[in-house]
């Protein structure tokens, strides 16, 4: 029939939908579409799709508070083989799963290579920071389920973990240092029930506070243990060992540890 118009290709229809054509070209396509209702229907579908997709994803085109931290995260961790802390953690965490399984079974050993050890060896004082660090590596990188009980149920969290630990647990408030509670979970420490609390600052930087029973009853003052860029402050006070872990500057972590120490003192007394 109207053969002169019968020259519109599939590619041209896409270009029409995507607005890549000049006005005269559009006119030619439209005239052709009027004579080809089936294709016109399809083109309308594609146009509607495009509009729906644009609308659907438009809300995501925004900056977020953590973007600056994400972009600058690299500078702090070397140059050539730099990796964002989150990614490093994710990778380490994956590698540590086996290791964590050992910890769960109360068989935490001194090295990743030999996780199967009798539970007794778990009890040396320096095993506390190691357990704290492995817990941090595993859970702080968890996007969806970093904790079992969230900060919205803080009272329940304190009661629950306190009960399992057999200790009047008061959850430290670290808001003065810019960290808010994410929540907590039950976690094996030294082969028995321990507690992990997780905090987060505005940029998503996380800290964990680990509490575990210490059957040896050895007191220690504040100590520091580092593993790469991961720092842990820990102390043992009577029957409970505490470890504050994060990938943050040591000076900041120390403030957090001081704050926790002060607030735990009070919870002990109460």
């Amino acid at each position: 029939m109207t053969d002169e118009f019968n020259t519109v290709s599939e590619d041209e229809l896409h270009a029409y939908v995507d607005g890549h054509l000049s006005q005269p070209e559009r006119g030619r396509i439209e005239a052709w579409l009027e004579k080809h209702p089936a294709r016109a229907q399809e083109v309308r579908e594609w146009q509607a799709q495009a509009a729906a997709l644009q609308q659907h994803f438009a809300v995501y085109a925004h900056g977020e508070e953590g973007d600056r931290a994400l972009v600058s995260a690299h500078r702090h961790h070397g140059h050539a083989v730099a990796s964002s802390p989150a990614l490093v953690l994710r990778r380490i965490a994956a590698g540590l799963l086996i290791f964590a399984a050992g910890a769960v079974a109360g068989m935490y050993g001194p090295g990743i290579i030999a996780p199967v050890r009798p539970p007794e060896t778990a009890e040396s004082p320096d095993s506390l920071p190691r357990q704290a660090q492995s817990a941090f590596l595993v859970y702080a990188s968890e996007v969806r389920h970093p904790v079992e009980v969230g900060a919205d149920q803080q009272a329940h969290l304190a009661t629950w973990l306190g009960k399992r630990l057999d200790y009047g647990l008061k959850i430290p408030n670290l808001s003065a240092l810019g960290f808010s509670l994410v929540g907590g979970r039950l976690i094996p420490v030294n082969g028995t029930a321990g507690a992990m609390l997780m905090y987060e600052d505005g940029s998503g930087q996380r800290l964990t506070v680990l509490l575990g029973r210490n059957r040896n009853n050895r007191e220690t003052s504040f100590r520091i243990a580092s593993q790469g860029s991961l720092e842990t402050f820990y102390w043992i006070d009577g029957e409970i060992g505490y470890a504050v872990t994060g990938e943050v500057p040591r000076s900041l972590l120390q403030k957090v540890a001081d704050e926790c120490y002060r607030q735990f003192e009070r919870s002990d007394a109460s």
Binding site: R68, A69, L70, V71, S72, A73, H76, G178, D201, S203, Q205, S226, S229, V248, P249, R250, S251, L252
Partner: peptide, 14 residues
């Protein structure tokens, strides 16, 4: 990593 403390004392990424 004592050296880092000074340069990163303000913490975080900024």
């Amino acid at each position: 990593s004592h050296g880092r403390d000074g340069s990163e004392a303000s913490a975080g990424a900024d």
